[in-house]
Amino acid sequence: MSDTRLREEICRYGRSLFERGLTPGSSGNISLRLDDGGWLVTPTNASLGFLDPARISRLDSAGRLLSGDKPTKEIPLHSALYETRSNARAIVHLHSTHAVALTMLPEIDPRAALPPMTPYYLMRAGQTALVPYYRPGDPAVADAIRGLAGKYSSVLLANHGPVVAGDTLEAAVFATEELEETAKLYLLLRNLNPRHLTPAQVDDLVKAFGLELPLHGEHDDTHDHS
């Protein structure tokens, strides 16, 4: 796909996310990793709803700005996820309401922020890690992402929002949307003892779709917060 088409894709998906209220104001950012190791990334203080393809930041493989506006301050976050997820070609970071709300709840397991509520959550987002709060743009968040050792394609930043990698921009956007909808379901059903997918049902999804889930098959007692 040409550079021009990739820029247009970033703007198209960004506008869709913005218009549906998934990231307000000038929050959120999108990046694409190019064949030469460089990136296209949304500029700092730019609304995803009003991106200009010509002003998308073009970085080289070392993260140096080659053209376009100054890039988002979340470059360390994107860089660490690309570094540890070798198949990732796109990353979406939003401030979506329900995913942010989820990060503030005391019972959330950092290794599996959401239970297996729906098949499409597992199929698109996998399991989701929660990392502690860091101020936006803090390089220390990169170390937190590296500490996950590439096991997670979807990560929640405490009190901040989701960051999701995909092998295409479409896949990253769809996974981010699925994560937001699952967080919404969790909040709607919290303390109502909902019926989640059983281990057997998760096993079936893993086998049918070749899913790689970090905690699959492990004994997990981290939900005991007594």
Rank of each mutant, 00 (worst) to 15 (best):
L213H: 03
M104H: 09
V202W: 00
L81T: 03
Y186N: 04
M1V: 14
T72H: 06
R85V: 03
D36I: 04
A172P: 02
S96M: 01
N29P: 02
H160W: 04
P53C: 00
R7Q: 07
A183E: 04
G166D: 00
A80P: 09
I91Y: 06
A165Q: 00
V173N: 00
S79A: 15
L188I: 07
E180K: 05
A88R: 00
A101W: 06
P110A: 11
K207V: 13
A158H: 13
H223G: 15
L187A: 07
S79I: 03
I145W: 04
E107M: 12
G147L: 12
E177V: 12
L215G: 13
H223A: 12
V164N: 04
D36F: 06
V164K: 00
R58L: 11
E170K: 09
F18G: 02
Q127M: 13
S2I: 00
R135M: 15
H98C: 05
L114K: 02
D69S: 14
G147D: 08
F50A: 15
N87I: 00
A144N: 02
G166W: 00
T128I: 09
L185I: 12
Y186M: 05
L185V: 07
S67D: 15
Q127P: 10
Q201T: 03
L40M: 05
A158P: 03
L66K: 12
G161Y: 05
G161A: 11
P110E: 09
P110N: 13
K207T: 14
L81W: 03
Y133D: 12
L157G: 06
F18Q: 02
R124I: 04
L205R: 10
G63P: 01
S47H: 02
T176M: 03
I10G: 00
A101Y: 10
S26F: 14
L77N: 06
D220K: 11
L48M: 13
I145E: 01
R20W: 04
G210Q: 08
P43S: 13
T44Y: 06
S79D: 12
A112T: 10
P199T: 02
N87R: 08
A165T: 02
L122Q: 06
G126L: 05
L211I: 09
A101N: 10
L66Q: 13
L189E: 09
G37P: 08
L169F: 07
A113C: 12
P71Q: 07
D69A: 15
D36T: 06
S226V: 13
D52F: 01
L17M: 14
Y121A: 07
